[in-house]
Design a protein around this nucleic acid. Structure first.
Length: 701
DNA sequence: CTAGGGTTAG
């Protein structure tokens, strides 16, 4: 109260005074108020001279404080404060809490203890502490602190302000707990702070984050004078709730647009899959672009599977003289991971080491994922072990998933226990990796145990993906009846993906009868998925039921469904080459075919290979079908091309978008033996490492 | 000495 009056009376000069001495100076205000204006100014001058020593100590302390990088050095400084009797200085203690809660990792509880022992904590201290909890692992502590603050307010110690509400609302948004959000909103109204522009903007973000777009819109519409930031928050909210059209309408209505608005729209178009709109109408038209615009585009391309465009833009970014930031780096690494661009990934890794990005966790996690998805588990392990600072849940889960994909089921489970020991709590995605590890390594009992552990010990509600893993676990192992029973007993209605998983298992184990029943369910849920029809027709083909094959294919044609074209990619000299089955009219493919011919004849002579497709079984299929079955799969072409181009001793790494077929799998095994080379093939479901005539999947995939 | 809107890995 006195502070407000003081500022009101003397304006600017006093404001400087306040900055220099902090809240601590307010104690003097009450004394000064009773004196005439001129005398106050004089007094102030004397006071400044007199207290310059003190100010000196304050600044020294502040400088020291900023140098503290760890909790250890900070506690030393705290001790120093206590020894010199400065511990009751609200300005210094406030800064101590700020530094502790914001700049030092995992030190928020310590900050809280400082506040706890401070006789009359200021609003600044509370606000800072709440702010610290927002980004912590437990944002709910922000709410607890908020309530503590309110209790103290009852005894007239602190006053809630707009900062308080802004931070608390952010915590609520991070927790996605809309009921607390509504409560805090109500309190904001009680305190008359809901119309504050900062609080209002945070309210919009909070509601949108929790999926309450209507409420967000209401706050926005009721704002007296929404500024650009508020508009941007509203547009972002629409995009979060998948309403790109609404976002675009708002964007067009804006009087003042800044760069952020355009970046939000870029992201919106990318998220809704409108890559061309983002590129042509926005990115290329923008007068001013910053690093966020570039990273948004690279990440957007990556999410939409436009790998070539993402890499081009990354190179372009260099060409125009800009430097990639951590976000564009994670984006480009994600492209390498998805496409298996191992060599390109290694170059990005060098850059990361050289430019000091190794300290950023998100970059490290992306790097880990890249090596793991490029089939180089040793490099992935290295990145994981050398990761600076603590390993986040993403780091652990990525490593577990990587091991699982390569078939190291036991090691994946061991790592999971290490993660628990290190105090990191697994979440739903961690369990997907664990269940995946179990199903791909044939660890059925373990899988069941982890599934119940997830529900009972961790209270994680299984999603479709978890159920899918379980169906896969039973199905892959050949217990189709158990898999079927599991589906019928699921507490949620099984979706197409679940049934599709069972269909896949039917295909592995050649169960025509169950496959037909599953197909019936699928035709109700998702009749237009060409993959299902292809799978069913393959099951018929293996069983020799050629008439049924023809029926399925005919019904596909009449529905206008076409088979998803299979592609395979291989990297040679940092260039990605992609092969599509049946394509013949370019030099690269011709080269691949020539080499393949040579390879296959050597396999026939030296390993007695005979194609599983060519033979008597084919005479029942129509001509078109025959041709389709005889078309060389893309992975064989990629293999041949790699063998023709890559030097001896290098590993052949191929990425395929669909699952590898049995014939290609056999060919790869034989090639690894006859030619003495190593092949790493990543298909849609897992990794296959071929060496000395056998595969790491032990023919279990 | 604090604040609201944009891109980040599993």
């Amino acid at each position: 109260m006195s502070g407000c009056l003081f500022i009101g009376l003397f304006g600017h000069g006093v404001w400087i005074f306040k900055i220099e001495f902090g809240n601590w100076a307010l104690d003097f205000v009450g004394l000064l108020l009773s004196l005439p204006y001129i005398k106050v100014i004089k007094l102030l001058k004397y006071f400044k001279m007199f207290s310059s020593q003190l100010v000196q100590t304050d600044y020294q302390m502040l400088t020291l404080l900023k140098r503290c990088k760890t909790l250890r050095t900070l506690t030393q400084l705290h001790t120093q404060l206590i020894k010199t009797g400065l511990e009751n200085d609200p300005f210094l203690t406030g800064n101590l809490i700020l530094h502790c809660a914001i700049n030092i990792t995992n030190a928020v509880p310590y900050a809280h203890s400082i506040l706890h022992y401070f006789p009359n904590p200021t609003a600044f201290m509370y606000n800072t502490l709440i702010r610290g909890y927002v980004e912590s692992d437990h944002p709910c502590n922000a709410l607890i602190t908020f309530n503590e603050m309110r209790r103290n307010r009852m005894s007239h110690i602190v006053c809630l302000d707009s900062f308080t509400f802004a931070f608390v609302l952010k915590a609520v948004a991070n927790m996605r707990s809309w009921d607390s959000g509504v409560q805090v909103h109500c309190l904001g109204i009680v305190y008359g702070l809901d119309m504050h522009i900062y609080v209002g903007t945070t309210l919009i973000s909070m509601y949108a984050e929790c999926g309450w777009i209507k409420e967000a819109r209401k706050v926005f519409d009721e704002m007296l004078a929404p500024n650009v930031v508020a508009w941007n928050a509203m547009i972002t909210g629409c995009i979060r709730c998948c309403d790109v059209e609404g976002a675009e309408m708002l964007y067009r209505r804006m009087d003042v647009k800044d760069l952020v608005s355009s970046n939000v729209m870029l992201d919106g178009f990318m998220k809704s899959g409108e890559v061309e709109v983002a590129k042509r109408m926005f990115f290329e038209e923008m007068d001013v672009k910053d690093d966020v615009s570039w990273s948004t585009m690279i990440v957007g391309f990556s999410h939409n599977g436009c790998f070539g465009e993402a890499l081009d833009l990354f190179v372009e970014l260099h060409r125009v003289g800009l430097r990639p930031n951590e976000v564009s780096l994670t984006g480009v690494l994600s492209v390498c991971a998805q496409s298996g661009a191992f060599e390109f990934g290694k170059i990005v890794h060098c850059y990361i080491e050289k430019c000091g990005f190794v300290w950023i966790r998100s970059v490290n996690n992306a790097l880990l994922d890249t090596y793991s998805k490029c089939g180089n588990i040793d490099m992935a392990r290295l990145v994981f072990e050398r990761m600076p600072g603590f390993k986040s849940i993403v780091s652990w889960t990525t490593m577990v998933a990587g091991l699982a994909m390569q078939g190291y089921g036991d090691e994946a489970l061991k790592l999971f226990h290490q993660m628990e020991d290190s105090g990191i709590k697994p979440d739903g995605i961690t369990f997907i990796s664990i269940l995946y590890a179990c199903s791909h390594a044939g660890l059925i009992e373990d899988g069941c145990r982890y599934f119940s552990m997830m529900k009972n010990d961790y209270g994680i509600e299984p999603t479709y993906e978890h159920y899918g893993c379980m169906v896969d676990l039973y199905g892959r192992a050949g217990d189709l009846q158990k898999a079927y029973k599991f589906i019928t007993q699921m507490p949620i209605k099984p979706n197409a993906v679940i049934w599709r998983t069972l269909l896949g298992a039917c295909s592995i184990h050649g169960n025509v009868e169950l496959a037909e029943e599953v197909q019936l369910r699928l035709s109700e849920l998702d009749p237009s998925d060409s993959g299902d029809h292809v799978l069913l027709s393959n099951i018929y083909a293996v069983a020799g039921k050629w008439k049924d094959v023809a029926t399925v294919r005919k019904s596909m044609t009449s529905q206008g469904l076409t088979k998803t074209p299979g592609w395979s990619m291989i990297e040679v000299d940092k260039i990605m080459y992609s092969f599509v089955a049946g394509e013949k009219d370019n030099e690269v493919t011709k080269e691949a075919y020539t080499k393949l011919k040579e390879i296959m004849s050597r396999l026939r002579v030296e390993a007695g290979y005979a194609s599983e497709v060519i033979g008597s079984v084919l005479h029942d299929i129509e001509d078109e079908e025959k041709e389709d079955s005889l078309v060389t799969h893309s992975e064989k072409l990629a293999l041949a091309f790699g063998m023709s181009r890559l030097c001896d001793g290098s590993v052949i790494r191929i990425v395929k978008n669909l699952r590898v077929c049995k014939d290609c799998h056999t060919v790869m095994k034989l090639v690894s033996n006859v030619f003495g080379i190593e092949i790493v093939l990543r298909d849609r479901s897992r990794f296959h490492s071929f060496r000395n005539g056998s595969c790491s999947c032990k023919d279990y995939w």
